[in-house]
């Protein structure tokens, strides 16, 4: 066992982990931050996306030890300070960007990365950026609409009106 120390959603944490402990396991099982979801465990679905030092990563495909010393952000840290939904979360609610909600934590975290890199993406850029996030309910249209709305753009032209 190795002790890892990191900041998760602004709070310092320290845990003993095995070499094979995944970051997703540390977050969910040790820290009980179960908003980060495990959909496929094969690096394909993106439900487990979190930010490590500001960059989106699949937490099921990174060892906890590799996040030693890092700043980690999860879906639990996304709401505003007063507990209200942030702009992205609110847009997903307003535009019905989810049905079962399982993929939503990863979608929100990926959206945050996209809008940091590209504050006003086109619809095509949004769809391309979501390549690593799978949703089996929505057909993506309302997710795309929510992301366009979160970026402050007109959503009237988005498909599936």
């Amino acid at each position: 066992m190795t002790t890892v120390t990191m900041t998760v959603n602004g709070k310092p944490v320290s845990e003993n982990v095995e070499g094979r402990t995944l970051l997703s396991t540390l977050l969910r099982d040790d820290l009980r931050l179960t908003g980060t979801h495990i959909g496929c465990d094969t690096s394909q679905c993106g439900a487990c996306v979190v930010h490590v030092n500001g960059e989106a990563v699949k937490s099921c495909t990174m060892f906890a030890i590799e996040a030693d010393g890092a700043e980690v952000s999860t879906i639990e840290g996304q709401a505003n300070a007063d507990g209200s939904l942030n702009v992205i979360q609110q847009a997903f609610q307003d535009h019905h960007g989810l049905q079962c909600g399982f993929c939503t934590p990863g979608m929100v975290m990926t959206t945050a990365s996209l809008l940091k890199e590209n504050p006003k993406p086109t619809e095509a850029e949004v769809r391309t950026y979501l390549e690593g996030n799978i949703c089996r309910c929505t057909g993506y249209h309302n997710i795309v609409k929510a992301i366009m709305a979160a970026s402050g753009q007109d959503v009237s032209a988005i498909a599936a009106e």
Partner: peptide, 9 residues
């Protein structure tokens, strides 16, 4: 290559 999260690692 892959997707944005894969490219970050």
């Amino acid at each position: 290559i892959g997707d944005p999260a894969v490219r970050n690692r």
